[in-house]
């Protein structure tokens, strides 16, 4: 027996819900991989945050402090430093000028260095400490350095892939 709604139901059935994009599958895959690694190592996200965040903060502190301690232009006026910092942030992948640091192992000398950002993925929302939401962004870099043999002038380029995962706290109103 035909119900009064049957035509309308059939018509609605013909509309196919939009498929989620590949981005969602990528984000889920990343989360599930993280889950598997948590299970294997027996760690929990909260424990990871508890121990890793202070270490990460210390690493950032040391990384920020080191250039200051070694800065040959330590006497530069603060305004110029601010301007320089702004410009550097705007062009993050500028190669550092070659330094003349000799390789302690032999005659190789570092002549160039550059970091290339080639990928960034928004992996969605994760919950760290309790209900605090974070947006997790994964950056992929290639760190390159060039070394020159002083005798033959041959140049060797070393490329090392690197991934940085950034947890950006989200505001909860």
């Amino acid at each position: 027996m035909k119900t009064p709604w049957e035509d309308l139901e059939n018509e609605l059935h013909r509309l196919a819900p939009k498929q989620p994009g590949d981005r969602l599958a990528t984000r889920i895959e990343a989360r599930l991989k993280a889950t598997v690694s948590d299970t294997v190592t027996g760690t929990r996200p909260r424990a990871l945050l508890k121990f890793c965040l202070p270490l990460a903060a210390a690493a950032v502190f040391v990384a920020l402090l080191t250039p200051l301690l070694n800065d040959p232009e330590a006497d530069t006026p603060p305004e110029e430093k601010q301007l320089a910092a702004t410009n550097t942030r705007a062009v993050p992948n500028v190669a550092r000028p070659p330094d003349a640091t000799p390789n302690p192992a032999g005659s190789l000398r570092r002549v160039g260095e550059a970091n290339y950002l080639y990928g960034a993925a928004d992996e969605g929302v994760v919950y760290g400490d309790g209900d605090t939401p974070y947006r997790r962004i994964r950056y992929q870099f290639l760190d390159t350095s060039e070394w020159q043999d002083e005798a033959s002038r041959a140049v060797v380029r070393v490329i090392v892939p690197r991934e940085d995962v950034l947890l950006l706290p989200m505001n909860v109103y």
């Binding site: 819900p17 498929q19 989620p20 969602l24 599958a25 889920i28 598997v36």
Partner: peptide, 21 residues
């Protein structure tokens, strides 16, 4: 792990659009 890996993709394929809606 491989089976689980492919299983979730199949599940997402089957239910993803309806879940999103």
């Amino acid at each position: 792990q491989d089976k689980a890996g492919s299983d979730w993709q199949g599940l997402l394929q089957e239910w993803g659009a309806r879940l999103l809606l």
